[in-house]
Simulated assay, not measured.
Amino acid sequence: MMEFYYSSDTCQRTPVNPQANRTTSRVSPWLSPLAYLLGRHCLLPLFFGQIRITGQKNIPTTGPVIFAPTHRARWDGLLVPYAVADCMTAKDLRFMVTIDECQGLQGWFVRRLGGFPVNTQHPSVGSLRHGVELLKQGKAVVIFPEGNIYRYGKVPLKPGIARLGLSAESSHSGLGVKIIPISINYSQPYPNWGTDVSIHIGSPIRVKDYASGCIKKDGKKLTGDLAKALEQLSHQETEITNHAFAEITNS
């Protein structure tokens, strides 16, 4: 049986009942392909101006992956699969989202497109356990490390990604979880029709390189390095002409 741990101020680990507060997710076999097809070929190309993507070669084609994008607008949830579609299929993507995003009509769609809720203020062991299960199945989990939409300034990252990656890696030797930082930049703070988008995909961060056995220390180091990677990617926006990118036109 898998055990999950909450970190404390020391390197001691306290086991938590893995059956508590069970969380699940699913991908609708008809809604998900339709939504991604319409989004990729109709909605996004018609709404946005130019969509530029760099770093697609950094996306692993096999093995468990955590995509860690910046969160600047609600459009991010569609732009991430748009950017990684050549390497991942819709059935492989799951989204860890806030509880508020799983309410009402929006929540109905989110849950059928692979979304599952997490309380960012008090994360439950159920959300963590489900994330680990997905990674063990070789799927990709999308988590916004800032925890919410922030349009301006530098935002401290939440520890959830590090906790999930380290828990998965420790529960299955040689799992090989990789975290992929993604910076999404809009030409306007509040995207509207014709807004340009730049998406920069960074080099994979190997979780096993941080698994020394002290959850709190390892998580802090991993979160810090992820923050640095996202900051470096955001700086590429000012130097975009010096970088090769794959341009997707409105055809």
Rank of each mutant, 00 (worst) to 15 (best):
P29I: 06
Y150F: 12
L135N: 02
E169I: 00
I66V: 03
L43Q: 11
G131F: 02
T24V: 08
L93T: 09
S127M: 01
W193L: 14
T195V: 09
F4E: 05
A83I: 06
L222V: 09
P69E: 00
Y190R: 15
R151T: 06
G165Q: 02
P33V: 04
K220S: 14
Q236R: 10
K158F: 01
R40E: 14
Q106T: 10
S203K: 14
F67C: 10
I215K: 15
H243N: 11
G165W: 02
S234A: 10
L44R: 07
K57M: 09
K57N: 13
P159M: 09
L135W: 04
P123A: 01
R111W: 04
D196A: 02
I53C: 02
Q137M: 08
H172C: 15
G63V: 04
R52M: 13
G39A: 06
T10R: 07
L134Y: 00
N250E: 12
P33D: 06
V177L: 01
G104F: 04
V142G: 03
T195I: 03
T24C: 09
I161M: 04
C11S: 13
D76F: 10
P191S: 01
T89W: 07
I180F: 00
E237R: 10
I184P: 00
V84H: 01
L38T: 02
